[in-house]
Amino acid sequence: MIITKKKPLEEVIDELKSYERVFIVGCSLCATASKTGGEEEVEEMKKKLSECGKIITGSVVLDPVCNLQKSKRDLKDFGVEISKSEAILCMACGNGLQTLGEIVEDIPVFPANDTLFLGEIKRFGVFEERCSICGKCLLTNGVAICPISRCPKGMVNGPCGGAKDEHCEVNPEQRCVWVDIYYKLKKMNRLNELRRINPPIDHSLRIKPGQHKVQRSVTNEPT
């Protein structure tokens, strides 16, 4: 899940300061779960912006925004409203924002949210980063705890010297992920996994921008 948080309203109003007529787009997936861009939050934003003197030309919660072809089709129903707008406010993640920018080329698109990380919903309103999308998943030891994402230093061979009382030197409120990995492996009776030397990460696998095309398998093609 892409975790987002709402920008302060003043910041959003500042982004929109030169525009009066605004169209609002929310997202049915991650932003709905993050409580930053679902139906409820879109309604709330409409109210708040109206109070600040904006004219809301319309709104939609796309399912999800980041599916380019689908969003293109779904937005066709709102052609009139969008053509009357001076700005689009996107209440999805940074990806959704750019998908909208690809679809609506002549109207500026602004973010209502800050995009934080790829994470887990622990419980209502609590999110934690879980994956840094590093291009080659290194969690081949079966322990299913990622040090690349959960250790500030991305240590690959065990804890740094700063782990104190099993907590992290960078954020003492957080447990040291390598101590957690150790306990889990010990419990699984697989401590030998910890002895394996992991080579430094291959950063050539994460050249920006990432691109991925699923190759159609030849055998599945109709003959």
Partner: peptide
């Protein structure tokens, strides 16, 4: 490996950690 930048006097520095202590030895 090295203390994290936020603990020091240039806290906004980019933390590199391309290699940790084991990586430097390798």
């Amino acid at each position: 490996t090295g203390d994290y930048p936020t603990l020091g006097d240039n806290p906004s520095a980019k933390p590199v950690y391309d290699l940790d202590s084991v990586g430097i030895l390798l």
